[in-house]
């Protein structure tokens, strides 16, 4: 047993956050190397499709993070925004025949308005709600949206046309559908946009301040009401666009929102709730791990992985990989 005397410092002192990140990085690296060594092109295929799904999780997780950091509310209806986005896209593009770019903008806009009005009508008047209240209200909302969608669109799974062709191309023996490129591109675009918004714009900087300390932020003129509204708007837009761009690959039905929301939440926890880069990291890694495990084990257990990861992370490091201790209350 090695014993350290008092005052003796280890040569390299990593901060706690970097330490967690490096352990995570090593695990991810090992997992990927093992997968590639064992399965070669199939392994690469898994990683690619894992990243595709992971990007979607990342987008949804960012929505969770934005709302949580500014209002301390977990929005259980986040997945439903994605479902509504996909459904509206189907209606506008396949049913009404509006060209894809316009119907994309139109559907995101409608879902955003729904999200913002929900915040104004229900969350905002509550002022300082308890955890159980918020959980139940947002669950009630998600049930409501799901029921309305089932009523309008029925229980069929609907297929949306891919944005540009269906012909897959091959990279290193793995095939990739063009829609995946759209997903990667859009996720990157959204991340950059979020970065610019939170680091350059006044509202975004105010929201970051409010996330750190709501009272102090409101003293220097950051309105908590605006912060909350903007957060819900961003989350709804992110959720809707995630639901739309994944729809050509995974199809859309009235009940896709549940799983998307839960996986998005698991990603947000994994990366660090309330911290947007953490959401991206969490989403991508959850997508890859899930796809690899679905490849190795019977795929029915795939969904259990996300929750197992969620519970393990919550127990070992509740603030997530990139989160900081003080973010926990």
């Amino acid at each position: 047993m090695l014993s350290l005397e008092k005052g003796v410092r280890l040569p390299v002192r990593l901060s706690e956050r970097r330490y967690a990140l490096s352990i995570f990085g090593a695990c991810a690296f090992l997992l990927i190397i093992i997968t590639l060594a064992a399965k070669k092109s199939t392994g690469f295929q898994w990683i690619l499709s894992g990243l595709t799904v992971g990007s979607i999780y990342a987008l949804i997780a960012m929505g969770f993070s934005v709302i949580f950091s500014s209002t301390r509310v977990i929005n259980f209806a986040q997945g439903e925004f994605s479902m509504l986005g996909g459904m509206l896209m189907y209606t506008f593009n396949n049913y009404a025949g509006i060209p894809a770019p316009y119907s994309f903008i139109l559907s995101v806009l409608i879902v955003t308005i729904i999200g913002a009005s929900f915040e104004r009508l229900i969350i905002h008047p509550l002022k300082k709600p308890g955890v159980i209240t918020v959980v139940l209200i947002t669950i009630g909302l998600s049930i409501f949206f799901r029921a309305v969608a089932k009523w309008i669109w029925g229980t069929d799974t609907l297929a949306i046309r891919p944005f540009s062709g269906e012909k897959p191309f091959r990279i290193f023996g793995a095939s990739l559908v063009p829609q995946s490129l759209w997903i990667f591109g859009f996720t990157l675009f959204a991340v950059i946009l979020m970065f610019i918004f939170f680091n350059r714009s006044l509202v975004g900087k105010g929201m970051r301040a409010a996330a750190e300390n709501p009272e102090a932020a409101s003293l220097i003129g950051v309105s908590p009401s605006t912060t909350s509204l903007v957060a819900w708007t961003i989350a709804a837009a992110l959720g809707a666009s995630a639901g739309i761009i994944i729809a050509p690959i995974k199809f859309v039905s009235f009940d896709v929102g549940v799983m998307l929301g839960l996986k998005g939440f698991a990603s947000a926890i994994l990366g660090g709730l309330g911290y947007a880069p953490g959401a991206v990291l969490g989403g991508l890694s959850l997508g890859v791990v899930e796809t690899i495990i679905a490849g190795v084990f019977p795929s029915g257990y795939k969904d259990a992985v996300a929750f197992l990861v969620l519970i393990v992370v919550l127990l070992l490091r509740p603030q997530g990989i990139l989160g900081r201790q003080e973010r926990l209350e």
Binding site: F68, I74, V131, V135, F265, L310, L314, E329
Partner: peptide
């Protein structure tokens, strides 16, 4: 709070 809600949901 929320963390407990999510963990029990996962279970």
């Amino acid at each position: 709070g929320h963390y407990l809600a999510m963990a029990t949901l996962g279970l």
